[in-house]
Amino acid sequence: MSNFVQNIVVLAVCWLLVTAAGVYVTFFEQPEELDRLEKAEKVTRLKEAELTTLLAEEASAAQQAEQILRRWEARYKIIPKELEDEEVVAYLNHLSRTGFKNFDITFGGIRRTRDFSAYAYQISGRGFFDALYRVVWELENNRYFFRVRDLRLEHIDLVSRDRESQREALHVMVSFTMGVEAYFGGAEGLSAESVLAGLPEEAGHVEGGLATVLPPVPAEVLPAREPAKNPFFPAIMSTIPPNTDNLVDVEKARLVSIVAGKAIFLWEDEYHQLDIGDPVYLGKIILVDPTEDRVVARLNKGGIIDEVELELQTGERYRQALGPVNLSPAEQH
């Protein structure tokens, strides 16, 4: 065999070996390695996503913790170590001194826990809604820790009679019941006093007889002191309020004259001089027209707005109402 043939055989054998090795690597080893690498890549991506989620959760938890800590450090409620029942009752009486027909306080006992103690009271009564709103506002926003529970309201109309004038007055009020808890004996660090223990004494003030050593809370961070609307005052009343101030009732009074732009009424045997804007029973005067001899009053009849026009029964209008009486010279004979 010549060298040429031997070389060809050697080259063929080498080519077969290389081809076989390539086929083995391509179809047997590489798929397994590729599958292993793909799985490793998925695991890496999952771990990266999990790490990203954990970092986001950590940031969110840190933000919530910071907010909670700020709120805790900014707390303004005081839970005193000691608080007498007489002090609480005196404070409730102080709040209810005006605007109530009755304000009855019943002591319900003391509730004691590991972290605090609380006096319980049951309160019932009748009063104006604005006055009750003021009491609840003070209890909820006072430095001392009070809590209002189970507040229930019912609308009532009370009619009172003045002893001297014997006139009746209608009062739109509410009857109410509620529970009030006054907390004391708080655990260490629970009260705002522990945060501002180093506050100078001159910063102290008194809230309804309960003294504190803390500055007042800024009004802008508290709810409105006055209710935006009285939900118990009806838009249209079934009963028109009585004339307690004895104002001129233009629907019953008699318009007798208009002098210098003012209307003269005869009401209950007395003369009353009224100008534009002056109050009358259920409303006010909105127009005094001396040229047309008329007066207009706008009245609120229990939520129904009405305008009453009165005409002076003299002059041209009066003569027109009676009819023309023009006699000719021939008819006068």
Rank of each mutant, 00 (worst) to 15 (best):
V259P: 02
K229G: 00
L199R: 09
G315F: 02
V136G: 02
L199Q: 08
V217Y: 06
M237C: 03
R149T: 13
V288I: 12
E48I: 04
Y76A: 02
E193S: 07
D35G: 09
Y91D: 01
I123N: 02
F233K: 14
R147M: 12
A20K: 05
A120D: 14
D275P: 00
R97V: 12
D162C: 14
L158G: 03
V25A: 07
H333F: 12
R45A: 15
Q273L: 14
K301R: 15
H94Q: 12
A235V: 08
E87I: 03
N141Y: 12
F145C: 06
R225M: 09
I236G: 01
A253K: 06
F265C: 02
F116V: 08
V248N: 01
V18G: 04
V18H: 08
S257P: 03
L196R: 14
D278K: 08
V288S: 10
R294S: 06
R167L: 13
A40P: 00
W137S: 02
L322Y: 04
P279R: 12
E154I: 02
L132W: 09
A169C: 06
E138D: 11
V296I: 15
Q273C: 09
Q6F: 07
D115A: 08
E226L: 07
R161W: 01
E164L: 15
Q273V: 14
P231G: 06
G323C: 07
A321E: 08
V206W: 04
A321H: 10
F145A: 10
L255S: 11
K42S: 06
E58R: 15
L214C: 10
A40V: 00
V213R: 14
G125T: 01
D245W: 04
V248F: 03
T19G: 07
F4S: 11
I105A: 09
I79G: 06
Q6N: 11
K262W: 03
E268V: 11
R163M: 11
R134C: 02
L310Y: 02
Y318E: 07
Q64D: 09
N243H: 08
L287Q: 03
Q332E: 13
A40C: 01
V280S: 02
D269K: 15
I276P: 01
L34M: 04
Q64G: 01
